[in-house]
Amino acid sequence: MIPVTLRITLIFAVISYFVFILYYLKNKMLELKYTLIWLAAGLVMIVLIAFPELLMTFVAFFGIESNMNGLYILVLAFIIMTLMTLTSIVSRQNLKIRILVQELSILEKRIRELENGE
């Protein structure tokens, strides 16, 4: 069983976590589609704090020694997922930047030629 004090702390932590994300979203410092995985992680945390029995079942199912370890594994899994999402976003943007630079530089040549009256 998760101690009550820990549960209270976790609830506050998750609430401030959501407040932070919403604050960034409101000020357009984050784009919603990139925060979906963060929000999903927060929701799972809330569910687990509200219904710790779920965590127990999860921990028992996978044969993990203690509840806290189960929690750590969950958190770790979310962090890895988030990192993978970020890497994929970076890669996609890299591709876009590449096309952008190439086409822009080709256009610059065209403009230079037009200015020289070729």
Binding site: R98, V101, Q102, L104, S105, I106, E108, K109
Partner: peptide
């Protein structure tokens, strides 16, 4: 000449 505005590596240059 096409002057790439940032360095893209040989592959990016050839692809241009």
């Amino acid at each position: 000449v096409v002057n790439l505005i940032v360095n893209m590596g040989i592959g990016g240059a050839v692809q241009t």
